[in-house]
Amino acid sequence: MPGGGPEMDDYMETLKDEEDALWENVECNRHMLSRYINPAKLTPYLRQCKVIDEQDEDEVLNAPMLPSKINRAGRLLDILHTKGQRGYVVFLESLEFYYPELYKLVTGKEPTRRFSTIVVEEGHEGLTHFLMNEVIKLQQQMKAKDLQRCELLARLRQLEDEKKQMTLTRVELLTFQERYYKMKEERDSYNDELVKVKDDNYNLAMRYAQLSEEKNMAVMRSRDLQLEIDQLKHRLNKMEEECKLERNQSLKLKNDIENRPKKEQVLELERENEMLKTKNQELQSIIQAGKRSLPDSDKAILDILEHDRKEALEDRQELVNRIYNLQEEARQAEELRDKYLEEKEDLELKCSTLGKDCEMYKHRMNTVMLQLEEVERERDQAFHSRDEAQTQYSQCLIEKDKYRKQIRELEEKNDEMRIEMVRREACIVNLESKLRRLSKDSNNLDQSLPRNLPVTIISQDFGDASPRTNGQEADDSSTSEESPEDSKYFLPYHPPQRRMNLKGIQLQRAKS
């Protein structure tokens, strides 16, 4: 015994090295194993092979420090690593049964499904019991997946119906949107047309105001020219009257000059006056001389005659003075006559000038009245044309509004008919989907599995289990394997941990 101590140590070291070499393959693929292994699927088989106990299973599945599946799978690998070579062998058998691809990844061999460990530990009855539990578990999982698949199909059909409904609603909204954009385009076109009409109206108003201003300026210029013409006519008439007055005065002077006595007659009258003065002096001298030589009687007679002569001279002087006064009065009367005649001529000139001015103003008033009548006639014609244009424009607008209203009513009726057609199509689609759903539900009910399987069917299934373990590994792997896509769409199922009653199965096998 003492001599065998070193050999035992060498043997233990060799086993430990082999164990480390075995687990080295697992550690190399630890990331892939932790990512894809579900500990809840492996722990029943590991407990059946007595590699882990209930406490280890509870620690792996329910520990609060292991929230994710990767953490739980890593903890399970750590626990199996502590179990040595047996933990490695049982772990590979569980991978061979549940995850053939991972088994091939770790060992590089094809899975054979021999279950040597569980046969050694529990015997064939334990293997049968384990396989029966796994089959029931798989059936329950398949039923749950079928239910989930039916629910998802129903949800899918519902979503398809909602999608069709949303599509129809979208078509309806597109119809309304198209109608909205069309009405918006019509409104924009009408606004552009309105702005264009306003611009045209403004341009016409500006043109009309400009023409009116030009016409008023032309009328004012015409009036100024007419006033200048009238003033020139007035000056012409005044000059004609002055010329006529000057002509009359010149004719009067000419007549006075023609009626003036001649120079010879004046000289002859002056000679006669001198001769008479000479004779008068001679007679006076004779009379003076006679007075001195005459007697007293003759002197008395001469005195009487002288007195008579003096009286006659006085009378004559009075007559001469009277004649002079009369001549002066006649001259003054002639001057007054000439003055009055001049005033008369001036008044006649003024009267004729005023008459011509009156005629001029009368003509001017007639011209202004004619212009006013023409302006009123043009204004009435413009008003009439404007009223006709406004009436025609309003009539066109009324007809346009009428046609637009008819078009809008027809478009609304068309839209309502399209919407009604879309709604009826939606109703038809809904009815078809309901009919299809009812038909599929009836087919699913016919094809669904019963909840409680008979014992004979279970025994028959387990009677055929042994050949399947040898020759149909691919079928078992397809039913027991969970793909990543299934984990996305289906909830994980945790079967209840219970042991099955095998009395009925044993009785059935005894009868057979």
Results as ranks from 00 to 15, higher is better:
residue 84 G to A: 05
residue 133 N to G: 08
residue 45 Y to H: 06
residue 111 P to G: 12
residue 138 L to N: 12
residue 128 T to F: 07
residue 121 E to C: 08
residue 49 C to S: 15
residue 20 D to C: 12
residue 23 W to V: 08
residue 140 Q to S: 14
residue 11 Y to L: 12
residue 4 G to D: 09
residue 112 T to S: 14
residue 78 D to F: 04
residue 57 E to K: 01
residue 144 A to R: 09
residue 49 C to E: 15
residue 58 D to R: 01
residue 118 I to N: 14
residue 132 M to S: 07
residue 52 I to N: 02
residue 60 V to L: 01
residue 78 D to W: 03
residue 22 L to G: 07
residue 143 K to S: 13
residue 15 L to M: 13
residue 23 W to I: 07
residue 133 N to P: 12
residue 29 N to V: 07
residue 130 F to P: 06
residue 7 E to Y: 13
residue 71 N to A: 13
residue 42 L to V: 06
residue 19 E to T: 12
residue 134 E to P: 15
residue 137 K to M: 11
residue 104 K to N: 05
residue 62 N to Y: 15
residue 116 S to E: 11
residue 10 D to V: 12
residue 7 E to R: 14
residue 48 Q to C: 05
residue 142 M to Q: 11
residue 97 F to H: 15
residue 56 D to G: 03
residue 95 L to I: 03
residue 131 L to G: 06
residue 65 M to L: 09
residue 59 E to A: 00
residue 80 L to I: 06
residue 4 G to M: 13
residue 80 L to D: 03
residue 35 R to I: 05
residue 140 Q to Y: 10
residue 87 G to D: 03
residue 34 S to I: 05
residue 70 I to V: 14
residue 68 S to N: 04
residue 20 D to E: 13
residue 143 K to H: 10
residue 143 K to I: 10
residue 86 R to V: 12
residue 95 L to G: 03
residue 43 T to V: 00
residue 143 K to C: 14
residue 81 H to Q: 08
residue 66 L to H: 01
residue 25 N to A: 12
residue 45 Y to F: 14
residue 118 I to K: 12
residue 130 F to Y: 14
residue 44 P to T: 04
residue 62 N to W: 12
residue 83 K to Q: 07
residue 14 T to F: 10
residue 44 P to I: 04
residue 65 M to Q: 04
residue 88 Y to S: 06
residue 101 E to S: 15
residue 30 R to S: 03
residue 123 G to S: 15
residue 44 P to N: 01
residue 89 V to R: 06
residue 116 S to Q: 13
residue 31 H to G: 05
residue 83 K to R: 12
residue 88 Y to R: 10
residue 39 P to D: 00
residue 94 S to D: 01
residue 117 T to R: 13
residue 83 K to D: 04
residue 115 F to W: 15
residue 122 E to M: 03
residue 79 I to T: 04
residue 34 S to W: 00
residue 35 R to Q: 05
residue 51 V to A: 12
residue 64 P to I: 04
residue 129 H to L: 13
residue 101 E to R: 00
residue 98 Y to S: 05
residue 140 Q to F: 10
residue 45 Y to Q: 03
residue 146 D to G: 12
residue 61 L to D: 05
residue 62 N to K: 00
residue 18 E to C: 11
residue 136 I to Q: 05
residue 125 E to I: 10
residue 73 A to L: 01
residue 34 S to V: 13
residue 47 R to S: 02
residue 113 R to P: 06
residue 85 Q to P: 03
residue 22 L to K: 14
residue 20 D to H: 11
residue 103 Y to D: 03
residue 143 K to M: 12
residue 60 V to P: 00
residue 29 N to E: 02
residue 91 F to D: 02
residue 31 H to K: 03
residue 8 M to W: 13
residue 10 D to L: 10
residue 96 E to W: 01
residue 49 C to A: 15
residue 44 P to H: 03
residue 138 L to M: 05
residue 122 E to D: 14
residue 47 R to D: 03
residue 104 K to T: 07
residue 64 P to A: 14
residue 145 K to L: 11
residue 83 K to G: 04
residue 119 V to I: 11
residue 111 P to S: 15
residue 40 A to H: 09
residue 146 D to A: 09
residue 61 L to P: 00
residue 42 L to R: 00
residue 6 P to T: 11
